[in-house]
């Protein structure tokens, strides 16, 4: 249904579970993909799996200069960036009263500030092309909060509000800016939870199971598609019903 043939997509955090599946989904729909992330090995493995129409662009999003260079590198490698998926994210959990300035700042820097800079870096090309898709991978935590994650929740909510403002500004240029907000998804991050923790988490989820990263990727694919051209400033919640927003 969704055809991205001829579109070029930059995906951050592609070395992770969700980012990898987002890359697979966009690539499967015909897009050329630039895989960005901090860990080179998984990026290369994914590139090998995908075969053609793929570029590996390692980038540490906590390094401002590397962030600034990334959109340019992606445009050079692919010819343009038509789709930007801001998926990369880090956590540094701590109780609010114990949270250090560094724990706060580094999560804001990588999750929110890098998103802003990458959006800025790709907009010029999208404005000229009169077509663009920006999909920010937020989190249910950005909407409902979570103990121990004040920094992460603030950054994820910030991405959404920033995206809405940007969506207003560029809507007339055929550029949409949306967010996907995953709930509990089976990834390396949630594998660390004990069975007891998982059981108690799942009590909050009407669907009674964790989500799969491919289910997040499907939502991103929709928002990146030509068919979603009238959807902008939206947040698509993919959380098994744990928060019906």
């Amino acid at each position: 249904m969704f055809d991205l043939t001829g579109k070029n997509a930059l995906i951050t955090g592609a070395s992770g579970g969700i980012g990898g599946d987002i890359a697979r989904a966009l690539h499967g729909a015909g897009a050329t993909v630039a895989l960005s992330g901090t860990r080179v090995e998984p990026l290369k493995a994914l590139a090998d799996e995908l075969g053609d129409r793929v570029h590996v662009l390692p980038c540490n999003l906590s390094d401002p200069q590397a962030v600034e260079a990334l959109p340019k590198q992606a445009a050079e490698a692919m010819g343009s960036v038509d789709i930007l998926v801001n998926n990369a994210g880090i956590t540094k959990d701590n109780l609010f009263m114990r949270m250090s300035d560094d724990e706060w700042q580094s999560v804001i820097d990588v999750n929110m500030n890098a998103t802003m800079k990458l959006c800025k870096g790709v907009l010029r090309g999208m404005m000229k092309a009169r077509w663009g898709r920006i999909v920010n991978v937020s989190s249910v935590v950005g909407a409902i909060g979570n103990p121990g994650q004040a920094n992460y929740a603030a950054a994820k909510a910030g991405m959404v509000a920033m995206g809405k403002s940007l969506a207003y500004e560029v809507a007339t240029r055929g550029i949409t800016v949306n967010a996907v907000a995953p709930g509990f998804i089976t990834t390396a991050m949630t594998d660390k939870l004990t069975d007891d923790q998982k059981t108690s988490l799942l009590k909050q989820v009407p669907a009674g199971r964790m989500g799969e990263s491919s289910e997040i990727a499907a939502a991103v694919l929709y928002l990146a598609s030509p068919e979603a051209g009238y959807v902008t400033g939206a947040t698509l919640h993919v959380n098994g019903g744990m928060a019906m927003l």
Binding site: R124, M127, K128, E169, T172, R173
Partner: peptide, 11 residues
């Protein structure tokens, strides 16, 4: 022009 047009003109 709207404000975004002026940005595009400069570009």
């Amino acid at each position: 022009a709207d404000s975004l047009d002026t940005v595009e003109l400069v570009m």
